[in-house]
Design a protein around this nucleic acid. Structure first.
Length: 923
RNA sequence: GCCCGGAUGGCGGAAUCGGUAGACGCGCUGGUCUCAAACACCAGUAACGCAAGUUGUGCCGGUUCGACCCCGGCUCCGGGUACCA
């Protein structure tokens, strides 16, 4: 007796795959490779809910499908194990983050294994294990020892730069730090170690610099921007000040252009590419010098509109601009000081929320217009940001919203430079115009005005073309415990990387995970770790969360290599990730950083590809369907069913969705869930309590979390997999509804009944397949092949259902049909297909059998049916031979009695034969 | 404000090239089997209408013999982002 009992089948095959290491992968140059990757999870304490595996199922289907197609498939899984929640948990409970993290990883793995993924678990990695982070540190050392050559446009070893300095100095080499000193080779050789290292730091790809952070004295820690509210700490409400501290950075700004161009070569969604483009924020314009009229120097401004140069009527500096102190006149001193105090007192949040508020002050200084020689007043305002461009702007109130508002508020002149434009109400921001009042630019349009103005400025030596990027260098240090320690030591306060032989720098145990109060991380509290025998001191910051995830996809290729981060031949073979599946929330974080790391590693010639991910798919979220019961007001503990609630005054309450069967409330489950309902009164409709519903984010707080373990236990892993895919396109967000899984569950039982009768006897036989049966098979092969590569898995599942329904109708239990059908289906529902595969007498696992090929001849009919429409309205059908030519069809249509009758004796103007199903007759 | 998506039955969603809109599933209605339930099966299910039929893919207009699909103008929803010069 054999019946479909998924609990046994699931376990049996998951065990089989593990025991025989079915999905273990190695380099096999006889096969084409395919690399399918999931964004590895951060193992949180809450475990997985049904939303998490969506992407994993999608990628697993592709992995299994590609194996059928003869590819050597790399499909690994691992854990992004460093992170704040584990550290927070450690502060609260004293549990070592390594311990809680390992516990969570074990739980995640168990949940993942229940779903039957075809991962090569031998390649599992964890970013928090020293085997892994040794190489994160090793890569950091490479970046520290590299600089960006702007001529060749790639990173190179810093030793080459030093060689260059020794030979010729740095007059011909651009430095990322524009204020950097210029020196000759002789001067270079005369510098002391400290000066040399300071200069090199301006070039390194991984570098340290002083930068402002949010410092909270009372809490003794640095806070992230979102931990600061109205200038006070989110926790405790203590004052937060800006403080200069030494931080590590990655020089991602050097890669801005290549990160932008690289987007052309990868398959990411438009919206994701757009997000990255916006983040990089390239703007093309000019940097111009404005001389101050009292010989106090020049103000550099960045503008994207050199064409509006004659509209400049004032200039504005950021309050933090270095010239502010020196150019302020005696008369304005007090005003300016007052304003700077005011700005100091304003938090980022206030500045952000009160964007419309216009503030500013006149410095008393004037700049000289490069062409008209007019004296232009120089103002200070917080609407000009120190961090963007040069921290100073030329204001053209006629062509810019903010400049216009500022000019109106402070009664500054507005010069109209656009022909026929009325500026009394608003500025003219449009770029279609003819310039006036613009001397040599008069009559020009935007494009010509831009280039002619710029040419002239360049010729006069007071301007240059400049491309400006919004993206800042990436902060790379955190004052935290649970992260990778830096391979850095300080000698005489100068940072040096340690020798490779000393790697890994392992994370020591600490007494307390709390912040230290000095602005340093918890590592600073262990003197025996910080202070080294040679007198040097270790860096006590740790790397940020994105360090390990920026390169983990390379480690999978050779996960246990103890000599290299991954062997060259492995990286050569596996190459780019062919398909990367994960959430869009990483658009400007992980997905940008990992692209940058790949480019750096490429530049240093360890790999031969520049983009890590060839194709990226962002899976949508699975939302929860919250369920409500309705408490009757002024009546104790009484709840009324959904359709009767209008008769009462009620307030809705979230209840656990797992207490419901569809919309119907299971009172016993509800009472078991919360004791307070045991004594409650329920007003029923038709003997049932019906709940209200609402689609919301899936979250514990809303009691709408569904655990995949429960679904798998109730319906089996295959039904769960099929249902997640059936819900809709992978990329879309859609609500979870447990009830709907019945459909796919029914489908699996139907499939089973094609193999076994009610008594458990195998009814498969070797009878020759009929054309109608072959047609069903080949229609399905065609459809699946078409849809699977584009990840249209929802329509694939539909096709399977249609096929199995049709085969059931024909009572087709023929081996010839069902064998290929199983292979088609095995990527989606691997457990049941393995079981049935074995029932067919096969000894080996189904995973590597070739995908059945599609035979067009089985789809052919002996005739075509054409719909006949008159003036676009469909009237009837005519049947034609398969090989009928358009001429024959036309003749047939025109001589057909019915058609003539419709046309009321009128001769058709034209007959349009569309190569599909409709013939159109036009009167 | 700006940028990017999207809008199709009660619900999730199909329609691959501009050619019979609503596949497939859920839900719902009626029925068969059953002492009953579960399972399974059958029929129906866009709206209006007894029917013939008419209207229907957010709204208005256009192109076309023919538009969910292409073009122009809106509305609403989702996401991203912001004194970025």
């Amino acid at each position: 007796m054999k019946e479909f009992f998924f609990k046994i089948i699931d376990k049996k095959w998951q065990q089989y795959w593990m025991d025989y290491k079915v999905f273990q992968t190695g380099i096999d140059s006889s096969k084409p490779k395919y690399y399918v990757l999931d964004m590895f999870p951060y193992p949180s304490g809450a475990g997985l809910h049904v939303g998490h595996p969506l992407g994993y199922i999608a990628s697993d289907i592709m992995a299994r499908y590609k194996r059928h197609k003869g590819f050597n498939v790399l499909h690994p899984m691992g854990f992004d194990a460093f992170g704040l929640p584990a550290e927070q948990y450690a502060i609260e409970t004293g549990t070592h983050p390594a311990e809680s993290t390992q516990k969570n990883i074990n739980r995640y793995k168990e949940q993942l294994k229940n779903i039957g993924f075809s991962y090569d678990w031998d390649r599992e990695i964890s970013t928090a294990s020293s085997d892994f982070y040794k190489w994160t540190q090793w890569l950091f050392i490479r970046f520290f020892n590299s600089f960006y050559d702007r001529i060749e446009n790639r990173a190179k070893p810093i030793s080459q730069l030093i060689g260059f300095f020794e030979e010729t100095g740095n007059y011909t080499i651009e430095c990322p730090n524009e204020e950097g000193k210029k020196f000759t080779s002789t001067e270079w050789k005369s510098f002391d170690e400290e000066t040399k290292q300071a200069i090199l730091m301006d070039y390194r790809l991984a570098f340290s610099a002083y930068s402002t952070v949010n410092w909270c004295e009372a809490l003794g820690t640095v806070l992230a921007n979102d931990e600061v509210i109205n200038g006070l700490s989110e926790r405790g409400g203590h004052p937060v000040v800006k403080k200069e501290m030494r931080q590590w950075f990655l020089r991602i700004s050097e890669y801005a252009e290549r990160l932008l161009l690289g987007l052309e070569k990868v398959e990411f969604s438009d919206s994701l590419k757009e997000m990255q483009r916006n983040w990089i924020g390239r703007s093309e314009g000019a940097e111009l010098d404005f001389k101050l009229d009292q010989e106090q120097g020049t103000i550099k401004v960045f503008t994207t509109r050199p064409d509006t140069i004659f509209g400049v009527s004032f200039m504005v500096l950021a309050p933090e601009h270095e010239l502010v102190q020196s150019i302020t006149t005696q008369e304005q001193k007090q005003e300016v000081e007052k304003y700077l105090d005011y700005v100091q007192s304003r938090s980022d949040r206030e500045r952000m929320t009160e964007v419309k508020k216009i503030t500013g002050v006149f410095t008393g200084a004037f700049a000289i217009h490069p062409f008209t020689k007019a004296r232009i007043p120089v103002w200070i305002s917080e609407y000009v940001l120190a961090g963007y461009g040069t921290g100073a702007i030329m204001s053209v109130p006629s062509g810019d919203d903010r400049d216009y508002a500022f000019a109106q508020y402070f009664k500054l002149p507005i010069i109209n430079i656009f022909e026929g434009v009325d500026l009394s109400e608003e500025p003219y921001i449009n770029k279609s115009f003819k310039l006036i009042n613009s001397d040599f630019l008069d009559g020009l349009d935007y494009k010509n005005g831009f280039s002619i103005a710029l040419d002239k400025l360049v010729k006069r030596g007071i301007g240059k073309r400049k491309i400006n990027y919004r993206m800042r260098d990436a902060g790379f240090s955190r004052q935290r415990y649970w992260g990778e320690p830096f391979p850095i030591v300080y000698k005489n306060d100068i940072p040096y990387v340690i020798d490779d032989k000393e790697l890994p720098v392992t994370l020591p145990d600490v007494e307390s995970y709390k912040p230290t109060g000095t602005g340093e991380g918890p590592l600073a509290t262990i003197p025996q770790w910080v202070n080294r025998p040679d007198g040097s001191r270790r860096e006590t910051n740790t790397m940020p969360g994105y360090a390990g995830s920026s390169w983990y996809f390379l480690r999978y290729m050779d996960a246990h290599n103890s000599l290299e981060f991954a062997a060259k031949d492995a990286m050569q073979y596996w190459n780019q990730v062919d398909l990367y599946v994960g959430g869009a929330e990483h658009a400007v974080g992980h997905l940008l950083y990992s692209r940058m790391w790949t480019k750096m590693i490429y530049d240093l010639k360890y790999i031969n590809f520049e983009e890590p991910f060839k194709k990226l798919v962002n899976q949508g979220m699975i939302q929860g369907t919250s369920k409500f019961i309705y408490r009757v007001k002024n009546k104790e503990n009484t709840f009324v069913s959904f359709n009767l609630k209008n008769d009462y005054e009620v307030s809705p309450l979230h209840i656990d969705v797992n207490c419901c069967d569809g919309l119907e409330l299971d009172l016993d489950k509800l009472k078991a869930w919360r004791k307070e309902y045991e004594s409650a009164t329920f007003i029923l409709e038709n003997g049932k309590y019906i709940c209200g519903t609402q689609v919301e984010k899936m979250s514990k707080r809303l009691n709408n979390v569904v655990n995949p373990d429960d679904i798998v236990a109730q319906y089996g892993a295959d039904a769960f997999r099929l249902y997640e895919m059936f819900l809709g396109p992978v990329e879309l967000s859609k609500p979870w509804d447990t009830k709907g899984i019945e459909g796919v569950s029914r489908f699996l039982r139907k499939l089973w009944r094609l193999f076994y009768d009610d008594h458990g006897n195998l009814i498969i036989h070797d009878g020759e397949a009929l054309p109608s049966e072959l047609k069903i098979l080949h229609k399905t092969i065609k459809k699946i092949e078409n849809d699977i590569e584009s990840l249209a898995y929802n329509t694939c599942v539909s096709s399977f259902m249609i096929a199995i329904n049709e085969l059931q109708e024909l009572k087709c239990s023929k081996r010839e049909i069902l064998t290929p059908m199983l292979i088609l289906l095995s990527s989606f529902a691997p457990h049941i297909t393995e079981e049935l595969w074995e029932a067919l007498g096969n000894k080996e696992t189904i995973a590597f059998f070739p995908f059945p090929s599609f035979n067009e001849s089985y789809l052919a009919e002996d005739s075509f049916k054409y719909g006949i429409s008159v003036n676009g309205k469909l009237r009837t059908e005519l049947t034609f031979a398969l090989n009928a030519t358009p001429d024959e069809i036309q003749r047939e249509v025109l001589t057909n009695e019915m058609v003539i009758k419709w046309l009321d004796g009128k001769v058709p103007k034209k007959v349009i034969i569309v190569p599909k199903k409709v013939v159109n007759v036009v009167v």
